[in-house]
């Protein structure tokens, strides 16, 4: 059974990553510290701003903190399972390591994207959730069974990041310096760190469609706090599907190009 085999492979990847991380125990602390500082800086930015204004584009201070909590845990989820794999993606192609993956009897993308698992980042998922829980009440989040929705929205946030990151990484097949495009991803990623309603119309439209960075945390936080219109739900589904197919096409063409260039 194929699924069982994939699960078994993933299990060994987890085990191996665990062994690897146990070697670098300091890494555990530094990775945690890095994210705590990052969270601190983002919280500080809004603390400074809310020291000057009571409400920002309809968001109160606790609501923005709740949003940030959702943002951090959704991002940490991505960091845990995918971040480093995408970092190494360009090396895979540029240094030809993909050649080896292509000879394996499982999907090369599965191997490429499951190799690095940052187990310590699980702590940051908890930290983000902690912040969300802390400010849930003052932000006006109903809680109760709706915490299950949080889990679902976190997964949607992570999926968005995977699809976007993939679409930015895949250009490595065409240009040698795709890191410039990858860096552009991180520039745009900044848009995810603020609620989408704060943005002027043009940018807001952009991050809800062509570059759906708002799906990472903005849309989830809004859905949890106030619920969304049906058109907005449809938009999320449609855009994500479109990105999935776009990525699939890019991967196929890129791979064909890679194979004809290297053989």
């Amino acid at each position: 059974m194929k699924l069982v085999q994939y699960a078994r492979i993933y299990g060994i990847q987890v085990k191996n990553n665990w062994v690897r991380e146990a070697v670098y125990r300091v890494n555990f602390l530094t990775a945690m510290a890095t994210d705590v500082i990052w969270i601190g800086v983002e919280l500080l930015l809004f603390t400074v701003i809310y020291a000057n204004v009571p409400v920002l584009a309809g968001w109160t201070k606790p609501q923005v903190y709740f949003f940030l909590g959702i943002f951090f845990s959704s991002d940490a989820l991505f960091t845990t399972f995918f971040q480093r794999n995408f970092w190494n993606f360009s090396d895979l192609v540029n240094k030809g390591e993909l050649d080896i993956l292509l000879t394996k009897p499982v999907h090369p993308l599965f191997l490429a994207l499951s190799r690095w698992i940052n187990i310590t980042a699980i702590f940051n998922i908890a930290l983000g959730l902690g912040i969300a829980i802390q400010f849930a009440n003052p932000a006006g989040f109903a809680g109760g069974w709706k915490w299950l929705l949080v889990a679902a929205w976190l997964l949607i946030g992570m999926t968005t990041q995977i699809l976007l990151r993939f679409a930015f990484s895949i250009w490595v097949f065409w240009t040698e310096r795709s890191w410039a495009i990858s860096r552009l991803y991180y520039q745009f990623f900044q848009f995810a760190t603020k609620p989408d309603t704060m943005y002027p119309k043009a940018i807001r439209y952009l991050i809800l469609t062509a570059l759906p960075f708002a799906f990472i945390s903005s849309i989830p936080a809004r859905a949890l706090l106030h619920g969304l219109k049906w058109s907005e739900y449809a938009n999320v589904g449609g855009v994500l599907l479109a990105f999935f197919f776009l990525n699939a096409i890019l991967w196929q063409t890129g791979l064909r190009r890679y194979q004809s260039a290297s053989s």
Binding site: I49, N52, V53, V55, L56, A57, G58, Q190, F191, K194, M198, Y199, P200, I203
Partner: peptide, 16 residues
């Protein structure tokens, strides 16, 4: 853009 967004939210939407 991020900066401008903040000013936009504070002054134009927020009316400060």
């Amino acid at each position: 853009a991020i900066q401008w967004v903040l000013w936009y939210a504070m002054f134009k939407i927020g009316g400060a």
